[in-house]
Design a protein around this nucleic acid. Sequence first.
DNA 1: TTGAAAGCGCTAACAA
DNA 2: TTGTTAGCGCTTTCAA
Lengths: 311, 311
Amino acid sequence: MVTIKEIADKCGVSIATVSRAFTPNSVINPQTKDKILKVAKELDYRPNIMARGLKNSNTQTVGIIVPSIDNYFYLDVLKHIEYCLHKYGYRLIVSFIQRGGYGEKEALNTIEDSRADALIFSPRNTENSDIVNRLKNKIHMLQLFTAPYNDISSIIMDDVYGTKIATEHLISNGYKRILYIGGDERVQGYYEALENAGIEIDENLVSLNWGISEEDVKQKILSLNPSAIIGVARQAETAWCAITSLNIHIPFIAYDDVNWVKMFDITAVAHPLDEIAENIVEYIISCIEQKSNQSINKIIKPFLIERSSSK
Amino acid sequence: MVTIKEIADKCGVSIATVSRAFTPNSVINPQTKDKILKVAKELDYRPNIMARGLKNSNTQTVGIIVPSIDNYFYLDVLKHIEYCLHKYGYRLIVSFIQRGGYGEKEALNTIEDSRADALIFSPRNTENSDIVNRLKNKIHMLQLFTAPYNDISSIIMDDVYGTKIATEHLISNGYKRILYIGGDERVQGYYEALENAGIEIDENLVSLNWGISEEDVKQKILSLNPSAIIGVARQAETAWCAITSLNIHIPFIAYDDVNWVKMFDITAVAHPLDEIAENIVEYIISCIEQKSNQSINKIIKPFLIERSSSK
DNA sequence: TTGAAAGCGCTAACAA
DNA sequence: TTGTTAGCGCTTTCAA
């Protein structure tokens, strides 16, 4: 393993000078620097981040805790974040919350022990506030998609808006009896769009039951005779299965642009992942590098991807 | 940030003794140890892995490079591996290969710079053999799912076997004209199963075109009149879309048990992810801890999950 | 512009 | 059973 000492010897300078060659904005003779850099390259030198971290008490590493939702969408999130971090020379360390395995507590500990400079997580609630409060003082934190802690920065989605544009899209295509299969956090956008369009609301068309079955959805479709359907997250799957098994055509929009949604060419409410990742990483890096701790609470608007299912 | 020095002071012992309390199998008075551990807990002490790593030249970290395939399946792989690693007190650092972004080279550098103790990757070819060869001497490496480097340990899937059990399953259900939509790496199992069953092979029923379109599959179904279909990986999607859009029922098996396959209750060839993860982690940890470098080349057999689509 | 030296937190060899 | 001490590779202050 090649160290600065080796380079120093080869170049006939001290280790301090070698260190300077790798430290931006440090006073050093340009020629000496060039020589050092050249030798370093020849020797395949890579700075030891542990030695550096021990001195600077940072690791150039960001931790992320992936929640235990069955959402493959999170792989894209990881991918985008890691890509952005890489641009700044940072690395990503992940810890998963396991259904049958360990929980948020262990994941938080994993990240804490890793001495990551920052942590991104999606807490379901504030059950681990003891650990979180302790961590807050040691490491920069950011809540992603959820925000149960009021005093920690967050980047979340404007879910109500997402439902609204989906509903508006269907209305503008001439559909009025829109069946909504989802949860109550996002339904407000559905109501708003209908009201704005002056369409009377039929409460029967709104299902807020997270655990609704395919059978139930079929029943609803047959009895209520909707002209279009919006399915949210997991309920989108259930609704789409119901539609296909009924073998009918009915305009449909899915909330969350995941793999199978793209596959069946379904119109979807999507998250601008690259924008989110950019926001996250920018914020985190600025916190770390300026050692500042400005708090942000950003709300990002989803957008609609029109495909064939909503025609 | 609390250090062993602080604990040492509080306990009236030397830092060496505190260190011993945290080192397994080290000679220390049990009472002293208890006291130290108690104080450490009170103080929320967490060992500084960078200091420890600097001394021991290890990081208790394993790196993984996620290939740029659109395979959400990899999220499960990550999840399982991280879970196993956690049991051994190791962490997982990930680097993604980006289609439009950076490639394997950069990912390898990221992991190298992180000073991970081991690396799991799925090289497509040996294009970065220069870096890989250098890394080989610094870090334990394991090829997962692919194995272009002969001199690096690997854990891969028995894909031919997977196709074979899928075909056998259909045959045992009485189907003989089985349409195969996939690539040529796995088709051998299809041939074997048919031969073993004494069924004559109709080459028209075999499509090895990775880029086949939904239209083409429809055409094949209509003209060849198969009694069952096997779709592999991406081609499984195409085939299933063709089937649903034709609005017919035809027994179907998908290779790879991904999200949408489960969702539509499709019989699938699945990978025993927990077993794979267990194998990977066991191997890696044994390499790291024993500093040995026994090479393994494991081939893991997939299995069939029977669901409604193959009836 | 450079070098000497201290020290980041920890481990381990050696001495007591 | 415990303490002293050197040193892992690097950064940074201070002096030259």
